[in-house]
Design a protein around this nucleic acid. Structure first.
Lengths: 338, 338
DNA sequence: TTGTAGGCGTTATCAT
DNA sequence: ATGATAACGCCTACAA
């Protein structure tokens, strides 16, 4: 089914059908209705490829997610969902590319095959070959997280430094003098993963400012690692009474280790962090945390990208989000031995 | 950058470039190399829209996932990841459409806009308007789960009836005489959600065959609902000593309710179910469960779809998977009061 | 071994 | 208010 067939059946020319559809020139009400009837009957819809070829745009966005191997965290998942939703709202389709590195075929297809009008890239590293590639290809893009050259590109990010600082302040205010940071994995940090580095910075700065002692632990993104990490903390640093964390996937394990050690939260041990709201509320007791606004970030990223596609040469825009900390039930004054 | 430019710079005609790329006719080694050099230099890649228009296929698959509102379970997430991976292996892109109902714009764009060569649809209902729509549009598709007319379509599914039966047999063999089924939500069941219905069938049949008593509970897909449901079971049916479940998302809540009730698993209470392996292993103690082979299902679905695209009129193929139950640590002989 | 030319389905310019 | 027509970039039958 194509526009020619619709034209034939409605007894008009193809251009009239096209204009009736786009509204870019006036079409008499009578013919418009006749055309619409035929269209409805055959449920015709313009061929996307032909339109893309002619218009030079695909009405499709690319979303580059971490490679399929690693599991998505709830935060990432929520973000993907919100991008899909925001794109659907403005009638854009989304092509997913699970690629981390540089020479990924699916990534290459998307950028140099002009399959999409713009790209959103998740889980950006401080030095990220994908960003370089997109810049070179002249493909509009927005990143989630930013590189070491933040002023050059469009991005949306969470201000992990500030948020972790706030967690530390909050814990210090409650009388905790020895605080641990449970960061993301050492590999991720070594690879230049921004949130990990910025959490570290915020932690170090806050700890110093409040004159409490702070120890950082790296931890892989899953429950068993969280359990092991928490055990190690309790074992090696019995003086520690509170943790701050950006590693939401480790939380169930952290929780388990504390339970096993017989440490009541928050009576004997406090936890504060940065997490998806859903995750924070599943924690028992519910987690005092900065609720990462993943939903908002997704639609923000889509908005920025659409803007950038429209004006590829405008100055890059960024948004650094620092959501407030939601006080829930996982923090309390430091336990004072009777 | 287009094929004409490559041709110009290599001093050959466009067709020669095209043939050099596709290999569909012999090109002298010398010109082939010259062309390749130019291509590498400009990193040219054929425009996907032009190619799709000419060839009548997009080299893209559609993946219809549950609408963005509801959260994906780990099983679903794993499935999505495996579809992406399987598609990437054969150089196909994947367009995601989050749509449940019938008149979804993104779904319509995909099917009647010829944006994809075929579609994989998740979370099929027994009567599913999307299936009808795809059939009417003549779009090749594979469903995850099947409708009430299973012979008419291609699908991959998990044999929930058999798996839940096996769970019940296992529990009965251990001496449990009163067993509960924690099913998915009542709304889902009412909407004709196949897995829920088949779990029910398998449960009823197995309970009858082993002459034990069985009670079914519906439960929403999240931890709080699981907690409430488990509490209700313990409260209303103190004789029950074991549950079988297909509701993996409820498991953390179930676990919590049992802990709070002071019921050791598996000493005092046994649990067996159907879950993503990851989920089963996160449960404490690790869950005796049929590990849903989500990864395998994804690549199976992609294979079936590719086959169907190639032979749209062949007899529909199906695969009903019944993975074995992995014995872990959540089931034990029924507790005998001393 | 290589070149020429037509058409895939749209949109948009020009003409009526 | 509407029609004819040229292009978008690619592939491929046909010609040389």
């Amino acid at each position: 089914m194509n526009i020619g067939e619709i034209a034939r059946r409605s007894g008009v020319s193809r251009s009239t059908v096209s204009y009736a559809l786009s509204g870019k020139r006036t079409v008499s009400e009578a013919t418009r209705r006749r055309i619409q009837e035929v269209i409805d009957e055959l449920d015709y819809r313009p061929n996307a490829a032909a339109r893309a070829l002619k218009e030079g745009r695909t009405r499709t966005l690319g979303l580059v997610i971490p490679p399929a191997g690693g599991r998505l965290t709830y935060m990432q998942l929520e973000f993907v969902a919100s991008v899909l939703e925001a794109a659907a709202r403005v009638d854009l389709d989304v092509l997913l590319s699970p690629s981390g590195g540089d020479h990924d075929r699916s990534f290459e297809r998307i950028v140099s095959g002009r399959r999409v009008d713009g790209v959103i890239v998740m889980e950006i590293r401080l030095e990220d070959p994908r960003v370089t590639r997109l810049q070179k290809a002249g493909m509009p893009f927005v990143t989630i997280g930013h590189t070491a050259q933040p002023h050059e590109t469009c991005w949306v990010d969470v201000d992990y430094a500030t948020l972790i600082s706030r967690c530390v302040y909050h814990l210090a205010d409650l009388g905790h003098h020895h605080i641990a940071l449970i960061n993301r994995s050492a590999e991720l940090l070594a690879a230049g993963y921004g949130p990990g580095h910025r959490a570290r910075e915020g932690f170090t700065a806050a700890v110093e400012q409040r004159a409490v002692t702070g120890v950082e632990f790296c931890c892989a993104d899953d429950a068993p690692a969280g359990e092991a990490c928490m055990e190690q903390i309790l074992d090696a640093h019995p003086e520690i009474t509170a943790v701050a964390t950006i590693n939401e996937a480790a939380l169930p394990g952290v929780q388990r280790a504390l339970e096993r050690a017989g440490l009541d939260v928050p009576g004997r041990f406090s936890i504060a962090g940065v997490a998806a709201k859903h995750w924070a509320e599943e924690f028992r007791p519910q987690l005092t945390a900065a609720d990462v606004p993943a939903l908002e970030m997704g639609s923000l990223a889509v908005d920025l990208l659409i803007e950038r596609i429209a004006e590829p040469n405008a100055a890059p825009k960024h948004r650094l989000l620092a959501p407030p900390i939601s006080l829930r039930s996982s923090t309390a004054p430091a336990f004072a031995a009777p």
